[in-house]
Every structure is written in structure tokens, then in C-alpha cells.
């Protein structure tokens, strides 16, 4: 329940914080990892340096305009040589070297510790998250990247459709998702946090609602989460008729054609579809629809029946053809998949 409330705060915070820009869960100026911290420090040096140069230039211009007699004697060539060539040349050279050094400092490929490997696959307009080499076998989830604090996490990014860009400002810079290519970026989170990431390359009409939450957990907590996510959900208690009905409805309405719920199959139906997000533990996530709504029975029902109101252009049709009892049962069933 606590994480649920947090999810609501985050989904809202993403909106407000995104506009405020300078703090909270999605800000390059509020770093939560060494790479973002280095980038932020360097950015502040750049801002300060640019401010000093701007003020200096304006002061010289004012001096020249207000006191023409004092500056008349200075040959223009001297200004052009020192101010137009030597100064910018030296400054840019220093910055080029510094940028390369910062680039090296935030590249954790040579980190001594073995990284956790994760693959993030972009889709219009959501993120598939795969942990391919866990001891208990691969794990697939969506729109939420949980990572252990302190350990490098090598994120391999690619896409199923158009170009997207993976950007978690509080942890690192951007990395593009290019069709047919596997790009890599290694993240390290320095403290437990819930952060918001965002597609940073315009990818279609719901680009703005293609969000991703990054949850940095203490390593022990992370291992517990992995174990819970790898477990196949128990079938609902037969006494809870609504949940049983929801489970049946998921199969009979054809949801399994696009979505996976591990272990869910009955008669001719199986939840094995690869077009939409894996829903095996959808009830445990912070948000639904890649950050568009907080999680919960209400939002799930709203999403199923009114996807196209909430996120028009998403690749899922609105299922307002389901009768009321089926819709509420389905929403409750999905919410029960913790």
C-alpha cells in the first residue's frame, strides 16, 4: 500500500516535477549516481564559465560604447587576435579535453565489479525490461527498471519499432535506441531512490507519456524483488468468485494474444502474446500505461475500457465492450498479480 501511494505521488510528481525541472525524481541537477553527479558538476562549471565570459564581454562592450576616448587608441587587430582567436581557442581546447575526461569518467565499462545485465526494448509507447542472466532464469517486466544500489548495471538498449532514447536524468545521460542495434550504457545508483526516466527522442503521438520508473533498492531488497518477480503467480482462491472470473475473462477476451501472464493457460487459451507488456506481476508496479496512471483497481479498469481516452495512439484498443461485471473482475484480477 505504501508503494501504491508512492506511485500516485510519482505519477503526479512526474508531471509537476517535470515542469519544475530542478529537483525531484527526474532531474539532471539532482543526481543520484556518480555519472550524473560528474555530469552535473561539469555542467555547473560550464554555466559559471559561460556567465563570467558573457559578463566580461558585455562589460568590454559597455566600456567601448561609454568611454570611446579611452579605447580609441587600442588597435582592433589586438582584440581580434586575443579576444577572438587566442582566448576562444584555448578555452575550447581545454573544454574538449575536459569533455573527453568527463566522458571517460562516466563510462563504467571498465568497472571492476561484474555488472548486472539488463536489456531495455523500446516500443511505441512503453518499455520492455529484460533481466537475461539471472540465476533463476530470465525475467521480463515492463516500464519499471529495478536495480541494486552500488552495483553497475549494464543496460543494453534496442527497439522494436522507431528510434527512442533512454534517459534517466538523475543517473546518466541519454542513450538512443536504434532499430537493429544494441547500444549500451552502464548505470550506477548511489542511494535507494525512485526515479523517473523518459523517452528522449520524439517517437510518435504518445512520446510524452513514454515514461519509465527506475527503482534503486538495497541489494538484499533487490534480490527479494527478483525472487518474487520470478515466481509464477498462484491461481486465485476458488472461493473468490470475482478473481476467478477475472482470470477467465483475461483468457476469453483474448488479452493473452498480446500479453504474457506466466503460468496462465486453460483449454485453448494461453497468455503468451508478445505484442504488449508482460503482465505477470502487473499489480506490483508503480504505474500503468508507462507512467500515465498510478496503479490500482480503478486505474486498471479505466485503462482496459478507455485506453484510447487515456493514451490515444497506444497499440491497445479500448475494451468497453466488456460487460461491467467482467471489467471490474478483470481489473481486480490484474491488481491481485503482485
Amino acid at each position: 500500500m505504501r508503494t501504491r501511494a508512492l506511485g500516485a505521488v510519482l505519477v503526479k510528481g512526474g508531471l509537476v516535477g517535470g515542469l519544475a525541472g530542478c529537483g525531484g525524481t527526474q532531474s539532471a541537477l539532482d543526481p543520484r549516481g556518480p555519472a550524473a553527479a560528474t555530469i552535473a558538476d561539469f555542467s555547473w562549471i560550464l554555466f559559471a564559465g559561460a556567465a563570467v565570459i558573457f559578463i566580461g564581454t558585455m562589460a568590454l562592450a559597455a566600456y567601448g560604447v561609454l568611454l570611446p576616448d579611452r579605447t580609441k587608441g587600442v588597435p582592433p587587430i589586438r582584440f581580434i587576435l586575443w579576444g577572438g582567436l587566442v582566448f576562444p581557442g584555448v578555452t575550447l581546447l581545454v573544454l574538449t579535453v575536459a569533455t573527453a575526461m568527463v566522458g571517460n569518467a562516466v563510462d563504467f565499462r571498465t568497472h571492476p565489479e561484474e555488472p548486472l545485465r539488463v536489456t531495455v526494448v523500446g516500443n511505441m509507447f512503453w518499455w520492455e525490461v529484460v533481466y537475461p542472466d539471472l540465476p533463476g532464469g530470465p525475467l521480463v517486466t515492463a516500464n519499471e527498471l529495478r536495480i541494486p544500489v552500488g552495483r553497475p548495471v549494464e543496460v543494453t538498449v534496442t527497439t522494436r519499432d522507431v528510434i527512442h532514447s533512454f534517459w534517466v536524468p538523475a543517473l546518466h545521460g541519454k542513450m538512443d535506441l536504434i532499430p537493429g542495434r544494441m547500444n549500451r550504457i552502464t548505470l550506477i545508483a548511489s542511494e535507494p531512490a525512485i526515479l523517473r526516466g523518459q523517452c528522449a527522442e520524439f517517437c510518435g503521438e504518445q512520446h510524452a507519456w513514454m515514461a519509465l520508473f527506475v527503482v534503486a533498492l538495497d541489494p538484499a531488497e533487490f534480490d527479494g524483488w527478483i525472487a518474487r518477480q520470478q515466481a509464477v503467480p498462484e491461481p486465485p482462491d476458488p472461493a473468490d468468485e470475482q478473481l476467478v472470473r477475472g482470470r477467465t475473462a483475461f483468457l476469453e477476451a483474448g488479452c493473452g494474444t498480446c500479453h504474457v501472464i506466466r503460468g496462465l493457460a486453460e483449454g485453448p487459451y494461453a497468455a503468451v502474446g508478445q505484442l504488449g507488456p508482460d503482465l505477470t506481476h502487473v499489480g506490483s508496479r508503480l504505474s500503468i500505461g508507462a507512467g500515465v496512471l498510478p496503479n490500482g483497481v480503478g486505474p486498471l479498469a479505466a485503462w482496459i475500457a478507455g485506453v484510447q481516452d487515456i493514451k490515444s495512439g497506444a497499440r491497445m484498443p479500448s475494451y468497453s465492450t466488456l460487460d461491467g461485471e467482467t471489467l471490474t473482475a478483470l481489473a481486480r484480477y490484474l491488481e491481485s498479480l503482485k
Binding site: 501511494a5 500516485a8 505521488v9 505519477v11 503526479k12 496512471l293 498510478p294 490500482g296 483497481v297 480503478g298 486505474p299 486498471l300 479498469a301 479505466a302 485503462w303 475500457a305 478507455g306 481516452d309 487515456i310
Partner: peptide, 11 residues
């Protein structure tokens, strides 16, 4: 309602 915690505005 604005926070949409319970999804009211979705429907």
C-alpha cells in the same frame, strides 16, 4: 481527482 490516484478521470 487531480492526482488521479484512484483513476476516476480515466473513466
Amino acid at each position: 481527482l487531480t492526482a488521479n490516484t484512484h483513476g476516476c478521470g480515466g473513466c
